Simulated scan of single mutants.
Amino acid sequence: MSATAYLAATGSALPGPPVDNATLGRALGVSEEWVDIFVGTRTRHFGWDLETGQVRHTLADLCAQAGGAAIDAAGLDPVDIEFVLLATATPDTLLPTTASEVADRLGLMYLPAFQIQSGCAGAVQALDLGRTLIAGGARAGLVIGGDVTHRHLDPHRDVARVPTEELVNYVLFGDGAGAAVLTAEPVAERVAVRGVLNRFTGLGRPPGQTVDWYGISDRHSDRPMLVEDYKAIEESVPTMAREILWELLDQLEWTPDDLDFLLPPQLSGRMTERITEHLDVPGAKEVSCVAETGNTGNALVLLQLARLLPDLPTGGRALAIAVESSKWIKTGLGLEKV
């Protein structure tokens, strides 16, 4: 790929006030201490009301807010945007796509609007595709990642009867969206995307996470909507993250000492701590958000980038790592401010 793509600006959207562990614990009938010890996440945001379940912010709402903020921060107008890429595991509807709804809200017209169905790897996959479009001649495009939980978490359910492997989803996940403007020339934040890793590695392996969908024929099924194999995730993700680190460093011809910032996978507060220790890059400053936002799926890498960009000095280098456990996808980014 001959042309370099640049991150010009980011935007983010987190709905409503943060919900702390005490508030969430009271609503679920579990102790605040259990939430803190089990996942290590302090707050998260929900686009739905914790007491009534009323949806107040859709995925399109959040993605349009984040995307508009990124375009403004880049100093561009909607007419300058030549493609939209939106990654999510929780679209508002199957059709029309949330990507096209967001394009409509942002006043974007006569451009490709792609939707990538993915999880924690989605934002990197979208940035990878965006690089290809920039290399093909596009001058600027919008990459968005976001997820919402209202289809998967039922506030009216008797949590005392919910198995632990399902209950943890109520404290692990949150709602949010992040966005970034990719450009062909270094403008605004001027962060070059030096390399991308994007690899499916789950051949013949059971998924670590399944997000189901109910159609008209099976909507009354008793099977859970969201299932995770936490043991497999805890065992596999730290190792996969370290593999991504070294594969990207080799691709970029960098060493760990070249890194100023490290953006580790954002599964939960506790898991991110373990993964960062396993990566063992003490000279790089960690950039994390999951303890404050909860696991927001496709938004996470973009929310990390929103925290990184203001602190990245000219010549500074950063490496971002994201692992998707659905079918074991390894992704990462190498970044340098020019």
Results as ranks from 00 to 15, higher is better:
M1Q: 08
A5I: 09
A13Q: 01
P15T: 15
G16Q: 12
V19H: 08
R26Y: 08
L28W: 10
E32Q: 14
R42K: 11
R42H: 15
F46Y: 13
R56E: 12
H57C: 10
T58I: 02
A60G: 03
A66I: 05
A66P: 02
A69V: 04
A70H: 04
D72G: 01
A73N: 11
D80T: 03
E82I: 02
F83M: 04
T88N: 02
A89L: 02
A89Y: 02
T90K: 00
T90Y: 00
L94V: 10
A99F: 07
D104H: 09
R105A: 06
G107C: 04
A113L: 00
F114V: 14
S118A: 15
S118E: 15
G119Y: 10
A121V: 09
L127I: 15
D128V: 04
A138P: 05
A138L: 15
G141D: 09
G145L: 01
G145S: 06
G145P: 04
G146P: 00
T149V: 04
D154F: 02
R157W: 09
R161K: 14
V162M: 09
L167T: 03
Y170I: 01
V171G: 06
L172V: 06
L172E: 13
G174S: 12
G174V: 12
D175L: 03
D175Q: 04
A179P: 06
A179T: 09
A184M: 09
V187S: 07
A188V: 10
E189W: 01
R190D: 12
V193L: 15
V193M: 14
G195K: 06
L197C: 13
R199A: 13
T201W: 08
G202Q: 05
L203K: 01
R205D: 10
P207S: 03
G208M: 08
T210N: 10
T210V: 15
Y214Q: 14
G215K: 01
S217L: 12
D218K: 07
E228H: 01
E228L: 08
D229V: 08
E235V: 11
S236F: 11
V237A: 14
P238H: 07
P238Y: 07
M240T: 08
M240I: 10
I244Y: 09
D258T: 00
L259Q: 10
L262G: 06
L263S: 08
L263E: 12
P264T: 09
Q266Y: 13
Q266M: 08
L267R: 00
G269H: 03
M271G: 02
I275R: 00
H278K: 03
V281A: 08
V281E: 07
A284N: 04
K285P: 04
K285Y: 10
V287F: 05
V287M: 03
V287G: 01
S288Y: 12
G297M: 05
N298T: 12
N298G: 14
Q304G: 05
Q304F: 01
L305V: 10
A306R: 03
P313M: 01
T314R: 04
T314M: 00
T314W: 04
G315W: 11
G316M: 12
G316P: 03
R317E: 13
A322L: 05
V323Y: 10
K327D: 07
I329W: 05
T331D: 05
T331V: 03
G332V: 05
K337Q: 07
K337Y: 11
V338K: 04
